[in-house]
Design a protein around this nucleic acid. Structure first.
Ligand SMILES: [Mn+2]
Ligand SMILES: [Mn+2]
Ligand SMILES: [Zn+2]
Ligand SMILES: [Zn+2]
Lengths: 142, 142
DNA sequence: CAATAGTTTAGAATTATTATAATGTAGATT
DNA sequence: AATCTACATTATAATAATTCTAAACTATTG
């Protein structure tokens, strides 16, 4: 979703009614320079603290999943109890900072294209994702 | 942990008391030809159904985490609510079958060594893991 | 407008996991 | 061998992320 686009129209286009909760969430998620990563909890905080708005937790979940299904959000695989989401929906790899629990995008140029030499019969490849775990140079890590 | 090794001695070596629960779990986990992947729930089922033994859920969690800390188990990152564990503790990549929710090891030869060109200041790389999501060729996928 | 299908919501339910605190036991000390 | 003690096990409660439920609300259509 491009910055400052007509969210009402965009939502209608994909068959989602432009409710005020969804429009507000579009603003929080897409009206910014860079894409970013968030958890549901982050998002709820952003809505209430930054926007001074109250959207029920169930609606935040519903809407995030609706946007995901429409291809406007991507879920990221990290071993953790909670899910991470990404407003950058293109195929890309990640660094995960084990100290801060922050996700950082890899640029196209950071990792060469990965060539899978094996193929599993009857199965097609949906995605190939690299996760690079990093942590403080000095510290004890798991 | 090698197959048919002396689990009692192995446990003592790393400072874990060889209780009957831990020995039983060693047998379930390591007395087999190939390494494998499991969830806590899988493991509890294996213990009760295959071994006809009852180990409390808390002990299964405790022991899995104790074995993980000692380097005899590895946790695998999949987006899911539940954690997967691996008796193959070496660095390796995975296929994840989105139909069956099964993890499959990549051989060394299946994916070329990954070269990370970016480095994050003050951080060292702990691991680089590839996850290849596969699904049935015909089916609707998320 | 009125009808209707889709949406929001508070709160309950579910699920994986961790914490608690009482009981049990391996291994050391007498 | 009996005793001691730190470590383990256990049932159960607590927690946390997520999903479900069902009633109230609202965007859109006719
Ligand atoms: Mn999801
Ligand atoms: Mn863990
Ligand atoms: Zn990203
Ligand atoms: Zn594996």
């Amino acid at each position: 979703m491009p910055k400052n686009c007509n969210f009402v129209e965009k939502l209608r286009e994909v068959g989602l009614r432009p409710t005020k909760q969804r429009i507000k969430m579009c603003e929080v998620l897409y009206n910014r320079e860079k894409t970013f990563h968030f958890t549901i909890n982050d998002l709820v905080k952003m809505i209430s603290e930054k926007m001074n708005e109250k959207i029920s937790l169930a609606t935040v979940y519903n809407t995030v999943h609706a946007f995901e299904k429409k291809g406007y959000l991507k879920e990221i695989s990290i071993d953790s109890q909670k899910s991470y989401f990404d407003t950058n929906t293109s195929a890309h790899h990640h660094f995960f900072d084990e100290d801060t629990h922050e996700l950082i995008d890899c640029d196209e140029s950071d990792i060469d294209k990965i060539n899978i030499k094996k193929n599993i019969t009857g199965k097609k490849i949906n995605s190939v994702e690299v996760l690079v775990r990093v942590a403080s140079d000095n510290q004890t890590q798991k």
